[in-house]
């Protein structure tokens, strides 16, 4: 059965647009075969870091993965120390940390079913020379990570680009 609904909007509506400034981002490169090992280490982070803000993972060059984890800045030193220990036995893995990053995330109706949503955000930011360091878009969510001095500008651009309905 097919049902068609007609819906039109001049600007893409979002449910909310949120900025979390001053976070830390760790980026780990590791061989795909070592996914089991690093999965175990991720589980161990629960005790010391408590929670993540964003995690993405995709293939780096052939046979390697890139795992990016955005956390509260207060967890930076703990993460660095743990990674130092874990990397001792994993010479083929590399880890780097970005000290100050800003996270902006938004959610909107049926984002996963509509074309042009990512383009709307990426184009608006590119026009203003704002570089996206990391992005994860899944379901109705779009997460964007920026260098720490660009988050508030990015937030303003996205606020002007998308429409956040308000109650009169």
């Amino acid at each position: 059965m097919e049902t068609i609904a007609v819906y039109w909007e001049a600007r893409v509506k979002v449910y909310s647009l949120t900025e979390k400034p001053g976070l830390a981002m760790g980026v780990l490169f590791f061989p795909t075969q070592r996914t089991g090992y690093w999965s175990g280490r991720l589980m161990e982070l629960e005790a010391s870091l408590n929670r993540f803000e964003l995690v993405t993972c995709h293939g780096a060059e052939e046979g390697r993965m890139q795992l990016s984890v955005v956390i509260e800045a207060s967890g930076r030193d703990t993460l660095l120390k743990l990674m130092d220990d874990w990397l001792q036995g994993e010479p083929s893995a590399q880890f780097m940390i970005e000290e100050q990053v800003d996270l902006v995330f938004l959610h909107g109706p049926h984002f996963q079913d509509r074309f042009g949503i990512a383009d709307t955000a990426f184009s608006a930011l590119a026009k203003n020379n704002i570089r996206i360091m990391l992005s994860g878009c899944a379901g109705t969510s779009m997460y964007l990570v920026f260098a720490g001095d660009e988050g508030s500008t990015a937030m303003k651009i996205l606020t002007d680009t998308f429409l956040i309905p308000t109650v009169a």
Binding site: G36, S39, E46, V55, G139, Y143
Partner: peptide, 22 residues
């Protein structure tokens, strides 16, 4: 998250990409 990835690794299922959402 680690448990999910471990399940994939343990059973040789490929992970092409992942992202968390809200």
């Amino acid at each position: 998250l680690g448990l999910v990835l471990m399940t994939f690794a343990e059973n040789d299922y490929p992970i092409h990409s992942l992202s968390t959402s809200i």
